[in-house]
Design a protein around this nucleic acid. Structure first.
Lengths: 165, 165
DNA sequence: ATTAATAATGATAATTAATACCACTTTATA
DNA sequence: TATAAAGTGGTATTAATTATCATTATTAAT
């Protein structure tokens, strides 16, 4: 965790930005909720718990900055809000997502599924790929088994689930 | 064109919706601009040229309806507006997009690039895929050749290009 | 055909995510 | 230290979308 913060600090410094306390608090929230897909509002509320004096505008600015530096990726699952997803360190490509249309959960796929596809696109369409977004919408393994599931096994819904309107 | 409208009319009727004059005007705009990726506002302005009495709310409602019936797909390229894209008739899957970060143009890929990938996802993640979104961000063939291009060849920018903030 | 119920529309108000603005504070630099 | 530059917080503003509601079609029932 601390090493991760240090590396992010260096990334900022290398572009002559500072890791201010507000920015650090924001980064910590992102790290502590790495498996989630938080909206700016979500991040704001979580940061406020630890640093109540922070302003919403600063959170937006920080997320925008982190996005420009490719520390986070801004994604949109079609529910009206942008969400911010930390890039995995050392990942060659942005990961993919599985959005469940039943429960709203978003799972991540870290595997590079698009290697071959990207070769085809670059060659056949003469398109220089810089980034990609791949999201599948469907029914997750949990909801497929929902009938067989005992009451005790049912996981509570999380507050920051994606809910497509 | 007329046959296409007829089939859409039937799709609506089969779910007991009517193809009202307003809905038909909206569908016509979508058909006449099939290669574009219009926002609701874009559609509204174009419909208004032919049927000035139409209201913005009706356009939004119609697009929402067409989306539910899977006649159009609602997509978001990260520039803050939803765009509406007609499904190709008989297409097994929603097509893919190439968004140019230089000129903002969106090109479409009709080929099914994800057949194998989807098999893997369904099997390895036990995820029942209903839909997908695949977008590549990068530099289009036109912008890669921009230097070699003569003044006369430069195409004017289109009004409804996607411009990522 | 007339009426009652239902569906659809248009105008506009309300909502909400995101951005702009501006006075103030902190940090770096001459 | 002074002085510029960078960053922040609060709030106003913008802009996309949705909600509301009175009015107008359309359909179904009598």
């Amino acid at each position: 965790m601390e090493q991760r913060i240090d590396r992010i600090k260096n990334q900022l410094h290398s572009k002559s930005y500072k890791l201010t306390p507000q920015r650090e608090a924001t980064v910590r929230v992102l790290l502590e909720n790495e498996e989630d897909h938080l909206s700016a509002e979500d991040v704001y509320l979580l940061v406020k718990e630890k640093a109540p004096e922070i302003g919403l505008a600063t959170v937006y600015r920080t997320l925008e900055l982190l996005n420009e530096l490719e520390i986070v990726d801004k994604i949109n699952f079609g529910d009206g809000v942008s969400r911010y997803d930390l890039r995995k360190e050392g990942a060659a490509h942005f990961h993919h997502h599985l959005v469940c249309i039943e429960c709203g959960t978003v799972d991540e796929i870290q595997d590079d599924l698009l290697g071959e596809v990207e070769k085809v696109v670059e060659k056949d369409w003469n398109f220089k790929i810089k980034d990609h977004r791949l999201t599948f919408h469907g029914v997750c393994h949990r909801c497929q088994n929902a009938g067989e599931e005992s009451e005790a096994e049912k996981k509570p819904k999380k507050r920051n689930q994606v809910k497509v309107r």
